[in-house]
Amino acid sequence: MGLNIVACIKQTPATTSIQLDAATGKIITQGLTYGINPLDEYALEEALRIKERVPGSWVAVLTLGRPQASDALREALARGADSAYHLSDEAFVGSDTYGTSYLLAQGIKKIQTEKSANIDIVLCAKQTNDGDSGQVGPAIAVWLGWPNVAYVRKIQDINAQTIRVERTMEDGTDVLEMDLPALLSVVKEINEPRLPSLKGKMASKKAVIPTWKAADIGADASKIGEAGSLTKIWKRQTPPVRTGGVRIEGATAEEKAVKFVEKIKELKLL
């Protein structure tokens, strides 16, 4: 008996240098290049490794985003995912983590219907590189009525009923066991992601990716979009630009070391 796995991914700006439009206060998206959120690669890779470990398993990738986000899904297919699903609708734009996690949970339920099979495991990254909140993974678990563990660094054991994982804590490692179905958010330490294969790339170009709108996943309009969000962004700001400070100069390392110690003492950093 294999396991049915969903990896949630997001297409995000490939850079963290973001500019704001002075007039509207919104992010200037023109000219930005996009890719799979780098942290999602670990979630996808772990999904593929579970599939390789448990014969008969399959991996579906799910994303929520604008039409172009299908590129991220195709890349995931090229890396070895078996199928891909895209949630895309103007009505989704502006959803906060509450609405986003709700939509992804609805998407997961819809995959179950499509496949006439229950999902056993959902994998997410610890966070995205744009929103940085890390809230969507655990929140999806609540919508699905599932348990979750965040910051997973290793899957110790997995079978059809349970999964045993290691969680990175500030002071060490917790080991937890969950009944399936369950959701994991993973950290980079968990694996080394593979690159897409040439064969995978070719196949991914031809893949048919279902795109689902609000009605397709039975989404409650009151929970989604800017209007449904429970948090509102009042304003955005860029932090003050950091410019270089003092350079310690000296003819020898000895001289520099003396000046350096004096300087950090003067700055009361000792």
Partner: peptide, 29 residues
């Protein structure tokens, strides 16, 4: 923390309320 970020997220949906993550400033406006 590791624990707090997952907890806040679960609580938000459990209580149907808004959650803000990793906040560095707080004020009343």
């Amino acid at each position: 923390s590791t624990a707090g970020r997952s907890l806040a997220s679960r609580l938000g949906v459990t209580l149907n309320t808004g959650a803000g993550a990793d906040v560095s400033e707080l004020s009343v406006e």
